[in-house]
Amino acid sequence: MKIDSQTERRIIFIVLFIAVMLPLIFPIGWTSEVSPHVQMTYDMVDNTPEGSVVLLSFDYDPSTATELQPMAISLIEHAWKNNQRVIATALWPMGVKMADAAFQELLLKYPSKESGVDFVNLGYKTGGMVTIQAMGRDMKSVFPTDTKTIPYEDIPLLKTVRSLKDIQFVISLSAGDPGIKQWIMGAHDMFGVKVAGGTTAVSAPGFLPYINSQNQLYGLLGGLKAASEYEQLLGIVGPATVKMDSQSVAHVLILVFIAIGNVKAYKKRNSKKEGK
């Protein structure tokens, strides 16, 4: 049986498509262990006193929302549970909408939380690290108003916040550049603000060197698995937990593909030897 490489690709694509879809329709229900970097992030949020102002930077867009949005929701929920007040900013233009969506969803669960008091969305600014450095000097000059065009000084939550230094911790949910790296360099390295991150699973290993004795990074959530672990820690069944089953099936499938690929290569090599 001869299959050309284009057809082979298509077969792989179709099998994967079906394999990921089936568990979504018929859930299986595997549980997982909590990894240390997720625990570190959870502890950082948990150990921050009530009433503190914290900052979540939405440095992603809809394309990575499956992984990062559940994190945003869990993190805001955790902060609100502890009566912390949340500032949302964005280094990516589309992050603003992601922040709004997260707040909207949680307001259904926590109707008493008030815009401007318990949370505020300051919106997007270009410039990445340059912007963060400017925030470390003076937040108001960077964000003259929030996304509802309410002037900075009229927002009760921001009364005590002059610069980044007045913020207990920054968590950057980042799909790339600018993102966690800029926050580490700008906020932690320059102004000593605690920084943790949530990122796609792919980028996570690249940030591990920053979890070090310098505490450049206080914790890291990498991908859907971390998001589901965070949900587990919060004791909620969230969107991330449900999707882990599909994940596991897809992982096995890819391993099977690798195995088939090797069998095929082995046969090819053998037939070449015989041919000689």
């Binding site: 498509f17 990921v20 996570a204 991908g223 859907l224 897809a250 992982h251």
Partner: peptide
């Protein structure tokens, strides 16, 4: 990195299927 990424990429597909 590659192995770690598989997860993320599958998540994206799950998002669309969702």
């Amino acid at each position: 990195s590659f192995g770690y990424t598989v997860m993320a990429r599958v998540s994206l597909l799950i998002g669309r299927l969702d």
